[in-house]
Design a protein around this nucleic acid. Structure first.
Length: 265
DNA sequence: CGCATTTGACCCAA
DNA sequence: TTGGGTCAAATGCG
């Protein structure tokens, strides 16, 4: 029978997750633990993508916590047995918003040697979150557009004056955010690809890191979190559709020829 | 077939 | 006694 062996490591993980952290609980879990008992090797993060922090985790339990609406899931590093990696984390949904925010409590440092690829995933996670935020904002803009259309339906049949405020400016702002986010992702891939022979760094966004001393083919742990998939897919589709069907937004390109060719052809 | 997940039971500290 | 954390058998999946 395996007894509790997750001894608290005194090493800190603060630097590794600093750039990924969305929010830091002002009354952090660490402080709470410090008041109860010494628990140095823990830190708390709030994230929209709790399952994709660059490491491979294996779920070993789930429990409803008293006072919480959502269950707490318990994960250990996949290499817990192979390499004796002591890292573990608890994930619990923090709210029921869309996308939901998760609280992730990390315990102990990884000793399995996957931290290099993990840093890439941190960046990827940030980019995914950027896209999700942009998508959310776009949905809000669409809602505003719908309201505006209800109020002044005839105006929608004509191209609105460019950059003249109102919904026009709002839509342009949303588009700028989305384009910026996509460029960030694309640029990230290019930077990674130009980084040389580092195969881990050259991985595109959301690709799994190379297995460490292992040849299994399981990759489900790397899939984009289900909360994020619809947002990114919609974003891609909306971006493409808007660019083609709403040509007055694409300043440098005159797509009138495209309309003409489709009509005459 | 092997690994990941699920889930009820168990352990243990408060 | 209670609640949080973990175990391990059963099950699912590729």
């Amino acid at each position: 029978m395996v007894k509790r062996s997750d001894n608290m490591d005194s090493s800190s993980e603060c630097s590794r997750g600093a750039h990924k952290r969305l929010l830091q609980d002002s009354r952090s879990y660490d402080q709470e633990n410090a008041m109860k008992k010494v628990c140095i090797g823990t830190r708390t993060e709030y994230t929209y993508a709790p399952y994709h922090d660059g490491y491979r985790w294996r779920k070993y339990g789930q429990k409803m916590i008293r006072g919480n609406s959502f269950p707490r899931c318990y994960y250990r590093c996949t290499y817990h047995q192979d390499h004796g990696c002591p890292a573990s984390k608890h994930v619990e949904q923090h709210n029921s918003e869309d996308p939901p925010l998760f609280r992730v409590i990390y315990t102990n440092e990884h000793t399995c040697g996957t931290s290099n690829s993990a840093s890439d995933y941190m960046a990827s996670s940030m980019q995914i979150q950027q896209i999700a935020d942009a998508s959310l904002r776009k949905a809000q803009a669409a809602e505003r557009l719908r309201k505006a259309e209800v109020e002044t339906p005839r105006l929608m049949h004509f191209p609105p004056p460019r950059c003249s405020g109102g919904y026009n400016m709002a839509m342009k702002e949303e588009k700028d955010v989305i384009v910026s986010s996509l460029l960030t992702v694309i640029r990230g891939c290019h930077i990674a690809e130009s980084a040389g022979n580092n195969s881990a760094a050259a991985l595109p966004v959301n690709r799994p890191p190379p297995a460490v001393a292992r040849s299994d083919h399981y990759s489900c742990s790397y899939a984009i979190s289900p909360e994020l998939l619809p947002a990114s897919d919609d974003l891609t589709l909306d971006f493409m559709l808007d660019s083609v069907l709403d040509p007055h937004w694409v300043e440098p390109l005159d797509l009138a020829w495209l309309k003409e060719s489709t009509h005459t052809g």
